[in-house]
Amino acid sequence: MPRDDVPLDQATFDRVLAEELAKGTDRRVAEGRARSAAVRAHRAANPDAHAEAAPAPAAGTAPAAAAAAPAAAPAAKPAPAPPAVAAGVAVAAPLTVPQREAPLPTGNLPTPKKGAPDKHRLLAIVPPEGIMRVEREQGDRVHTWPHLLIEEFIAALIVFAGLVVFSTFINAPLREVANPNLTPNPSKAPWYFLGLQELLRYFHPMIAGITIPTFILVGLAAVPYVDRNPSVKPGDRKVAITLFTILFMFGSVLTIIGSFFRGPGYNWVWPWAQGVFFEL
């Protein structure tokens, strides 16, 4: 649907839209292209109507001309405004860029270093319709407001409601005051470290407590640099997915064992028979 806040040429819009659709372009992209073509067509047909929207040629080139004013002699060849003069001036030039007779720099401008690129692109010429032109594939996009924000809001609400209800009915534990001389049996780390504590049963503490955790963290961080397979399709990533799933399951199983299947003396218990020795 053409928006009504920018004037555009309806005939061009319809024609380009039909063309793009015939090419099989996505409808959103097609509409964008049709709109930008229509805006440009409208501007080309009514140059005066946009006088205040886009600075007139004279106004657009004014800073460059003013800076170069002392050198009244016209330049030998038409050159784009020299960088030093144009620096910092972003000009919205009109549709057809006029041939500018910019004089060559006089004064003592610094001589460029040898081998330096002979042009510094400090000035961008932005055609008036530029900000409306569809430059890249828009893809299938929706507005953040309301679509995404409402979704995020609802997710936050659900989590918060769940947390409040849970916290109303279930108290966080608070045992007796700390006593360094009285070791509880069993003594367990917080649940997210129980996988490591479980490993202590099988390995030397240096392996279980230092080597393996370091390896996990460094290994995780290295994942994107090791897995150079560019595809994100699950079918193309069988090895990566299998490895990760095995490791993830391994960690989960160790954590569950450490949490629920270990009792006094950190010995094996069946939670349904001897009870659960686990606190959060």
Partner: peptide, 16 residues
Amino acid sequence: WDQLAIWAVTVGTNLA
């Protein structure tokens, strides 16, 4: 600073 706290932390930091 209850029994749960210091002993969980003792177990966790023993590894260091």
